[in-house]
């Protein structure tokens, strides 16, 4: 079963639109959702959460229509945005009291355990917490009703590598249960390389690719050479080309290229750049 399934999602604004976005997040996996600023990541996530009304298309969460079964579905999801959107005069203890009344499955013990793990002062008001602390509190809030699906919209942006690593470990721990799934939107592709199983890339409101991370990282390769050398590569192996001052970089399917061509292992960022800025064949 898919935790998230999106078919032909369309939403338009002045100067931007999501164009027939389709992808799915299989249950038990982490989907990395990448794209440049303004590509449509947050808009897609807002449509999934019914924060924005879609124009047409189908959004299914746990196999059910997201808008029709909104309340039941939202009992099983945890959401983390790029900031903590709660009144700044509240503190972590008051938020626990609130959440206890919102979720039947709210686990105060687990919540305070996470707060202790993250060293978040329980009586300090949200406005007195650092950005890192606020994000950790946001994650503790998203996890403490034991959701089946986490929807993360840039949760690690603006955080230092140490805090990011702690947060990623927490997501990895969440994924120990094979029924759990994560949709993780991020600019920081190195974070996704650590935890994602699949990568979906969006550009100008359109999905460029949605593939298994392992397929991309191990089956793709980058060949760097002159125009003459590149012309010797088999055409069907070439996915994309980027022309630079020192020659040409070519993203190829590793299995279709002779071993005499030295290939480098690509990163998600490089693959994304080939699709967004390069000439994809």
């Amino acid at each position: 079963m898919n935790a998230i399934e999106i078919h032909d999602l369309h939403k338009s604004f002045v100067g931007f639109s999501l164009k027939d976005v389709s992808f799915s997040v299989p249950q038990g996996t982490v989907m990395g959702f990448v794209g440049e600023n303004g590509a449509g990541k947050s808009t897609t996530i807002k449509c999934i959460l019914n924060l924005l009304k879609k124009e047409y298309g189908e959004i299914l969460l746990f196999g059910k229509d997201a808008a029709e079964h909104e309340i039941a579905i939202k009992n099983d999801i945890g959401v983390v945005f790029d900031d903590l959107h709660v009144p700044e005069t509240l503190n972590a203890t008051q938020l626990d009291k609130f959440m206890k009344k919102v979720f039947i499955s709210w686990d105060s013990h687990y919540y305070f355990e996470r707060l202790a793990q993250f060293k978040i002062p329980v009586q300090k008001r949200v406005k007195e917490l650092s950005r890192g602390m606020r994000m950790k509190l946001s994650i503790a809030l998203a996890l403490s009703h034991h959701p089946k699906l986490l929807i993360l919209d840039e949760p690690t942006s603006g955080l230092d590598p140490i805090i990011r690593d702690e947060i990623l470990d927490l997501f990895l721990a969440f994924m120990q249960d094979e029924r759990h799934s994560i949709l993780f939107s991020s600019h920081i592709t190195s974070d996704l390389e650590k935890i994602a199983d699949y990568i979906t890339c969006i550009h100008n409101g359109e999905i460029l690719f949605s593939e298994s991370k392992d397929v991309m990282l191990y089956e793709y390769g980058i060949f760097k050479g002159s125009k003459e050398e590149v012309s010797e590569l088999p055409e069907h192996a070439i996915i994309g080309k980027r022309y630079g001052i020192f020659g040409v970089e070519v993203l190829v399917r590793r299995n279709d290229v002779n071993e005499v061509f030295p290939l480098e292992k690509p990163t998600i960022e490089e693959i994304m750049l080939f699709y967004v800025k390069g000439n994809v064949v």
Binding site: K74, F81, H85, V86, P87, E88, F103
Partner: peptide, 18 residues
């Protein structure tokens, strides 16, 4: 006003509240 300042509605609408 407090809700508006922190964009509370964006968060509240991710919770199981109508």
């Amino acid at each position: 006003t407090y809700d508006e300042l922190c964009n509370w509605d964006k968060y509240a609408n991710t919770l199981p509240i109508s």
